[in-house]
C-alpha cells in the first residue's frame, strides 16, 4: 500500500510559478518547499520537519515539507533536480541519494553535477550484528569463518542498495568473502530475521540495534565508522581489522544546481546555527544520530566520495536493477 503524504506535493508547482518574480529582493519572499523522499513519520521526515520549522522562524517565512516517497528517494531527488534553482525548492536527502544512480540506470540524476549541496545535518554508522548461535564473538573470528565457507551463509539487509547491503558488500569485497544477500523490507523486518536466526548476520543502523544488543539477542562485532562510536565504545571499528573501510549513513540538504551561492550560504548558516542549539542536541540524541554539520563544500565532497565509492562496490558486486 502506498504510504501517503498529507502535506502534499501540490505546492511544488507553486514554488515554480512564484519563483520567477522573487529574484530581486531579499530571500525568501515566498514559501520554501523542502522535498523529502520518505513517507511522513520516519526519522528523516521528522528531522526535516523540525528543521523546516526552525528555518521558518529564522527567515520569517514558511518552509513546508513535501513528502515524496517512491523509488527509494529517487522521485524526490529527480523533482529537486528539475525545480527552478532559486532557493524555493530544496531537498532533504540521505545516503541513498548517492547510491541510487549507480544502482539503477533508470534513475536520472547525477548527485554531484545536478545539485548544489547546502549542508550535512547528521550521520550514523552501521553495526555488524551476528546471532549468538553463529558462534563468533569478534570480527576476526567472523572473517575467518566467512572466508572458510564461501557462499554458505546468508546475510540480510533492509533492502537492495540500502546502506546495510552496501556495508556488507564492501566488507566482503575487502576480505574476499562470499555470502548470499537476502533483502528484507526495512530495518524492522531485518532485525526480526536476525533475532529469529533466519539470517545469521547483517549490518544494521546502530540506534535501532542497541536495545537488542543490550538484551543479549544480538552480538555487535564492529561499527562502520572510521572511529569507534560513542554509543558502543567497547565495539571496534571495522577499520581496525580492515584498514580503509569506512561507511556512514548521513542526511542533509541540497538545492538544484545553479542556486545562487548567497542563498545556499544563508540556508547553510541558518541550519548550522540551529544544529548548535541545545534543543537540537537534545532532539538528535533522542533520535540517536550524531549531529554532523558541514559547509556546502564539505558536504559536496562527502556526496562525491560516496558516489564514487558505492559505484565501484555496486559494479564489482554485480548488483543492478534492470
Amino acid at each position: 500500500m502506498k504510504v501517503a503524504s498529507l502535506v502534499t506535493s501540490i505546492c511544488l508547482s507553486l514554488a515554480l510559478l512564484s519563483s520567477a518574480s522573487a529574484q530581486d529582493a531579499k530571500y525568501p519572499k515566498d514559501i520554501v518547499h523542502i522535498v523529502v523522499g520518505s513517507s511522513p513519520g520516519g526519522t528523516a521526515d521528522t528531522v526535516s520537519r523540525l528543521i523546516a520549522d526552525q528555518l521558518g522562524k529564522t527567515f520569517g517565512q514558511t518552509f513546508v515539507v513535501d513528502n515524496m516517497p517512491g523509488a527509494g528517494g529517487a522521485l524526490a531527488a529527480t523533482t529537486v533536480k528539475a525545480a527552478a534553482p532559486d532557493g524555493y525548492t530544496i531537498g532533504f536527502v540521505f545516503s541513498s541519494f548517492s547510491i541510487l544512480p549507480s544502482l539503477n540506470p533508470k534513475v536520472n540524476y547525477n548527485p554531484v553535477t545536478d545539485f548544489a549541496p547546502i549542508a550535512k545535518v547528521s550521520s550514523a554508522p552501521n553495526v555488524l550484528l551476528v546471532n549468538p548461535s553463529f558462534g563468533v564473538k569478534t570480527l576476526a573470528e567472523w572473517i575467518e569463518k566467512v572466508k572458510a565457507n564461501p557462499g554458505k551463509f546468508d546475510y540480510g539487509s533492509g533492502g537492495i542498495g540500502y546502506s546495510q547491503h552496501l556495508s556488507m558488500e564492501m566488507l566482503l569485497q575487502a576480505i574476499k568473502g562470499e555470502s548470499v544477500h537476502i533483502p528484507f523490507t526495512g530495518s524492522g523486518n531485518l532485525l526480526a530475521a536476525l533475532i529469529s536466526d533466519q539470517v545469521p548476520f547483517a549490518f544494521d543502523t546502530l540506534t535501532t540495534a542497541v536495545p537488542h544488543i543490550n538484551a543479549g539477542e544480538l552480538i555487535p562485532l564492529a561499527v562502520t565508522s572510521a572511529q569507534r562510536s560513542e554509543v558502543l565504545p567497547q565495539v571496534p571499528a571495522v577499520a581496525e581489522q580492515v584498514p580503509g573501510y569506512e561507511l556512514t549513513a548521513w542526511n542533509g540538504f541540497v538545492a538544484p544546481k545553479g542556486t545562487p551561492p548567497e542563498i545556499v550560504k544563508a540556508l547553510n548558516e541558518a541550519i548550522l546555527a540551529y544544529l548548535a542549539t541545545d534543543k537540537a542536541k537534545e532532539f538528535f540524541a533522542k533520535v540517536g544520530t550524531k549531529i554532523d554539520p558541514s559547509t556546502p563544500d564539505k558536504f559536496g565532497a562527502v556526496i562525491g566520495d560516496d558516489y564514487e565509492k558505492f559505484g565501484k562496490v555496486i559494479s564489482e558486486a554485480g548488483i543492478k536493477a534492470q
Binding site: L6, V7, T8, I10, L14, L17, S18
Partner: peptide, 9 residues
C-alpha cells in the same frame, strides 16, 4: 487541515 489549498496557483 489536510493542507490542500482552497485557491490554486
Amino acid at each position: 487541515d489536510i493542507g490542500l489549498p482552497l485557491l490554486g496557483d
